[in-house]
């Protein structure tokens, strides 16, 4: 086993300015965008959504009209 020395310089690639992989950047910003939208849609103060309200809706509709989940 040829060991590399225990220094931060040796253990990481020299090109520290290397740009991040495109796929990963898309994932990063995509999740932030998705999160902002989800936060808006499922926070009672912004959208009026609530889990209790969702339940009321589910039980108010006729049972037969819903596909069995």
């Amino acid at each position: 086993m040829s060991d590399i020395p225990d220094t931060a310089e040796a253990m990481e690639a020299k090109e520290t300015s290397r740009t991040l992989p495109l796929g990963w950047r898309l994932l990063f910003w995509g999740l932030i965008a998705w999160g902002a939208a989800y936060l808006w849609l499922y926070t009672p103060a912004t959208s009026g959504w609530s889990q209790a309200g969702e339940y009321e809706k589910a039980t108010a509709a006729p049972a037969a009209a819903r596909p069995a989940k």
Partner: peptide, 13 residues
């Protein structure tokens, strides 16, 4: 949980 099947099975959420 406030889910239909669960309320039927156990009682009010």
């Amino acid at each position: 949980r406030p889910l239909r099947s669960e309320v039927v099975r156990y009682g009010d959420y």
